[in-house]
Each structure stands twice: as structure tokens, then as C-alpha cells.
Design a binder for these strands. Structure first.
Lengths: 158, 158
DNA sequence: CCGTAACGGTCAAATTTGTAACTATCAACG
DNA sequence: CGTTGATAGTTACAAATTTGACCGTTACGG
């Protein structure tokens, strides 16, 4: 019944280490698109998601990126000002606005994609092929896992 | 010179996937200590770091946790109010304040450690032993890696 | 149809966070 | 010693984020 070893050792705590690693990588990459185009994180996210989907609503983007809807709203506004994306109305449902990248937006994303790939390549090179494969398969597992009591702050819990 | 495949495929982009996975895990775990003790993220971080070190200055904590010094300052204040930590002066240098957990703080951390370990066990169980080992070794690699042009927003760059 | 509930989106207030200035202390050097 | 520059930490103000209410629609059961 000793209490001695009941203190968690943080250095080995998986969520802690995962968080630190992700933050390190995210910050380094954020520096890339910030320096290159002055994009904020939410703006980059919306841009990237929208580039995948070609056409989406703000709600869809929020769901994919796990971003609060007001954050999406603002990022969309910012990208619209740059003329990187445009809105259009839905014929059937007048509540929804379809978003899609403009020609400019697509070409800017393509340009950033170059840097992104370069960044990723450097990372992969540093990790090594084997570690990278293992990491990717572990990430896939995590994506699939159903964690207890998620209680998401961003998206309404249904 | 076709522009077609120059668009990054986000689903396979390592920094993106790493970030998503870490956020998913972090959020789920944050729900645990928030529900159990009403701790905020920075508070949990300071508590956990301090539990590792037994005694530390605010600056040290900030460096370890990669937290801005004002964030640390506030979290320390909050934990002090709970009587989970106490300050004491340094004899030699009167600028520094040593922080350490009180008896209460230690026992609260021990209690939270239980939940933390349980959470981690569930995660590891879901991932499987092999994937977990691989993940840990990949994380070690990332921790060691030197990423180009870090440009940290939190800590002064030396 | 009509009333109620739900949805997409925006806006404003409240909370959280970062920036920069400030206090107090110390260290180095002439 | 006195001046200059650095360090530890807090605080005031500004920027970003979240929360909650809101408007205009649409869906649907009575």
C-alpha cells in the first residue's frame, strides 16, 4: 500500500511525448508557410482541406480539420480577401455556401505544396524509412481508435 | 510541366497526421483531468512537471513544458491558490522563487497519475504492443531530430 | 399548411493567450 | 562603487479563441 511509485513518470507518458513531438513538427512547418505567404495556421488548414475537396461548405471543412466554426468562418474570410477562394450559393438550400479555391488559390497551394513536400522529405530522411513506416502505421491505428469520453471542445458532440 | 499532381495530398502528409493524432489523444486525456479535478491544460502541465522535478523555478518549468512564462506564471498562481504548490525564496539569488508541490499537491498528482496510467493502458491496448513500441521509437527519433529554422514562438531562441 | 426543431452561418461578449513593458535583482567591468 | 546589461518574474494591454446568442432558412410531424 505504499504510495511511493504512484507518481507518473512524465518522460515516458505516451500522450505527453506524442504531443511534444507533434508540436515540434507543427511549429517547424508552420514557420514555412508563415514565412512564405504569411498564412496563419487556420488559414493554411482551410486552404489545404479545400484543395483536397475541390468544393466544400464551411461546416464540412470544420469537421475535417477539427476546427471551430467561427475559426473556419474567419479563415474563410481572410482567404476570400486574398482572392484565394470564392463562395457560391446552393440552388436547393439557400443556407449553404459552397466554397472553392480560385485559380490563384490553387496555384498558391501548389506552390506551398512544394515546400510542404520538401519539409516532409527532410523529416522522413531524418527519421529513416523504417521508422517512418512504423510511425505511419501507428498513426493509422490512433486515427481508428475510439477513445473513451471524447467530450470534444470544438465540434458539438452530436 | 503539368501542374496536376503538384497539389499535396493532405491525408498522407506526415505533419498533418501527426498533429491530428496527438490532438485526438490530448483532448481525450484533457477531458480526464478536467472532469476529475477541474484542471486546465497549463495547470496540469505545471503540476506534472513539478512532480518530476520535486523543486524547480518557473523558468525551468517553462523550458521543460515549452510554455510561455506568463502562462506558467498564471498556472503557478492557480495551483498556489489550491494549496497544491508553495513558493520559497532562494538564499543566494533573491530573484528566483523555488516551487514545490505541497503534500496535498503530491497526493493529488498521485491520484491523477492513476487515471493517467489507466488512460495510457487503454490506448496501448488499443494500439497493440508492437505498434506502441514502434511509435515510441519513432517519437524518440523526432525528439532528437534537428528541424530547420525552428523559430519558436514560446521560448526566446536562446 | 403550421409550429417546432434543426441547420448553416455570423456576430458579440467572455475567456484565454501572447507581447511588451516594468520591477527587482544580480553580474561584470572599468 | 557606479554604470550597463542580463535574468526572474509579474502585470497591463492587445490579439486570438471559445461560448452563446442570434438570423434566416429548411425539414418534418401533426
Amino acid at each position: 500500500m505504499t504510495q511511493d511509485n504512484s507518481g507518473l513518470v512524465l518522460r515516458g507518458f505516451l500522450p505527453y511525448r506524442l504531443h511534444n513531438a507533434a508540436e515540434k513538427v507543427s511549429l517547424a512547418f508552420a514557420a514555412v508557410y508563415k514565412r512564405q505567404e504569411g498564412l496563419s495556421r487556420p488559414e493554411w488548414r482551410v486552404l489545404a482541406i479545400l484543395a483536397q475537396l475541390a468544393r466544400a461548405t464551411a461546416t464540412e471543412i470544420g469537421a475535417q480539420a477539427n476546427m471551430h466554426k467561427t475559426k473556419v468562418s474567419r479563415a474563410v474570410f481572410a482567404l476570400e480577401e486574398r482572392r484565394w477562394l470564392a463562395r457560391s450559393a446552393d440552388d436547393a438550400d439557400r443556407r449553404v455556401e459552397w466554397l472553392q479555391l480560385t485559380r490563384t488559390g490553387r496555384s498558391q497551394f501548389a506552390k506551398l505544396s512544394q515546400s510542404a513536400r520538401q519539409f516532409e522529405n527532410e523529416l522522413v530522411a531524418a527519421l529513416g524509412d523504417k521508422a517512418t513506416r512504423h510511425l505511419l502505421s501507428a498513426l493509422t491505428r490512433i486515427e481508428e481508435v475510439r477513445l473513451a469520453e471524447q467530450s470534444h471542445p470544438h465540434s458539438r458532440a452530436r
